[in-house]
Simulated scan of single mutants.
Amino acid sequence: MVRLPTVDRHRRPGGRLRPGTRPSGEAVGRAAVAAGAAPKKKADAGKPSAFERGLAALAQYRERTGSVTVPRSHIEEIPDSDGVVEVKLGVWISNTKSRRAKLTGEQLDQLAALGLDWR
Results as ranks from 00 to 15, higher is better:
M1G: 15
K41W: 06
K97G: 09
G54S: 07
G14S: 07
Q107A: 04
H74K: 10
P71G: 02
D117Q: 14
V68L: 03
E52T: 15
T21A: 06
A59G: 09
P79W: 02
Q110P: 02
G25Y: 09
T21N: 06
T6I: 14
M1F: 14
G29A: 05
S81V: 11
K42D: 11
A57I: 04
S98C: 04
I75P: 00
F51K: 03
F51H: 03
I75V: 15
T21Q: 07
K40M: 11
D8V: 09
R3Q: 14
I78A: 03
G15S: 02
L58I: 05
R11I: 10
W92E: 00
A56I: 08
A32V: 06
A101K: 13
V33A: 08
A27R: 11
F51V: 09
L103V: 02
E77H: 10
S49G: 11
R99V: 00
A113N: 10
G36W: 01
R18K: 15
P13S: 14
R16Y: 05
H10V: 12
A113L: 06
R53A: 08
T104G: 10
G54I: 03
R100D: 05
S24L: 13
E52M: 11
Q110Y: 00
L4P: 11
H74G: 03
E63H: 10
S81Y: 06
L111W: 01
K97C: 06
A35F: 02
G25K: 12
P23H: 10
G105I: 06
R22F: 15
L103E: 01
E52S: 13
I75Q: 04
H10A: 12
